[in-house]
Design a protein around this nucleic acid. Sequence first.
DNA 1: AACATCTTGTGACTTAAGTCACTCAAAAAA
DNA 2: TTTTTTGAGTGACTTAAGTCACAAGATGTT
Lengths: 212, 212
Amino acid sequence: MPINILIVDDDDIILSSLKLIMDLDCDINVKGLCKNGDVAYKAILQGQDIDVILMDIQMPVCNGIIATKKILELRSSIKVIVLTTFDDDEYIYEALKNGAMGYMLKNSSPDKIIEAVKVVQGGNLLMHSNIALKIPGLLKKEKKIVLDSLGLSNIELNIMKFIAKGHTNKEISEELYLAEGTVKNKITEIFNKLGLRDRTQIAIYYLNNCGG
Amino acid sequence: MPINILIVDDDDIILSSLKLIMDLDCDINVKGLCKNGDVAYKAILQGQDIDVILMDIQMPVCNGIIATKKILELRSSIKVIVLTTFDDDEYIYEALKNGAMGYMLKNSSPDKIIEAVKVVQGGNLLMHSNIALKIPGLLKKEKKIVLDSLGLSNIELNIMKFIAKGHTNKEISEELYLAEGTVKNKITEIFNKLGLRDRTQIAIYYLNNCGG
DNA sequence: AACATCTTGTGACTTAAGTCACTCAAAAAA
DNA sequence: TTTTTTGAGTGACTTAAGTCACAAGATGTT
């Protein structure tokens, strides 16, 4: 049986050229072309039998990320392939979160896009190398950058970690074999070095910049 | 030219059966079998010409995650395919962070694994559906689960958010048009409902469970 | 030895945070 | 209407957090 696909893009030229490419393969059946995410969503809502969606990111009315989220909430069996021209980090992250199963660049060769449709239809996730290489950078907010670059001593760093675990000064002093007063002094130092105000801000800083 | 691969697994049976599978395809050339990540690392270090590595996760001496990291730091052009029996969340996340380009289950069919080797060699990231479906859960720590499930009122939630931004009670009272005393009372309520102790723990809780 | 310096500690202090019993007014239920 | 319930507020209190000046011991430099 053929793979029924929907193509979603605000650009007519891309829309028609993608249709041309897809029509080249006799296993693929282009069931519809949509000018934005909202139109696609409504098509699914009306019960169109779609297996795979080629989804542009930047579109007026309803962009590809939101459309993906809404469509998958409606019917999670549909495989969404996200198409990007520029590979914007934030979009990839959001698309992953929303459950898209394919990530291709628009300038990929026709056979690569066809391959992607088939791999994704087979249930697997496929991502273009240029996009995949961005993932590590997206996921790790690099502990060590902060760890080195801010001139905190080892003890100050340890105190910071304990604060970020929600411990009190007394507890920290016992855990690090220091006097409570010393812990307080160190914390004041951390405030000065990082431009913070209270221990809650230290915890927030640590969780946001040094991973949690 | 053939694809040169290395197979890394502590289990001899899996090692030899994977070799059998790979030998079925004439485009693939098994160049070596390693009993743990450290052996694989040393093989790369000695300059073995490898394109793709099939890497087990759980191994003695040096596990697959650490090995992937070390090997890619050495030679980033190598494509690592992670093989798992059980699909452990934490491992997937770590492997993604370290730059692995393939994620397959060991019980995948031989042709699926061969397909994975070729897709990955072509530069793309491939991930088994069962694993891919776990990504959204890994990435979003679901704001709304906490938002609803913990019986916090709207005001309490707003106060929580401001605490997680590092604001003082006075600031919060001005931002929410409440008396400072009311803010304090609400915070005490949050403590009781969530079993926390001070505002720093609220900030930590919010950042860990409700995204930041 | 004399000097600087770095880490840890102390004590006295100010302020913010957190607790608790109780008030007051508006809204909802009887 | 009367009674409860609920949300916001007050005031007095305890405790933890944070500031600051300074002391003591270890180490290091000239």
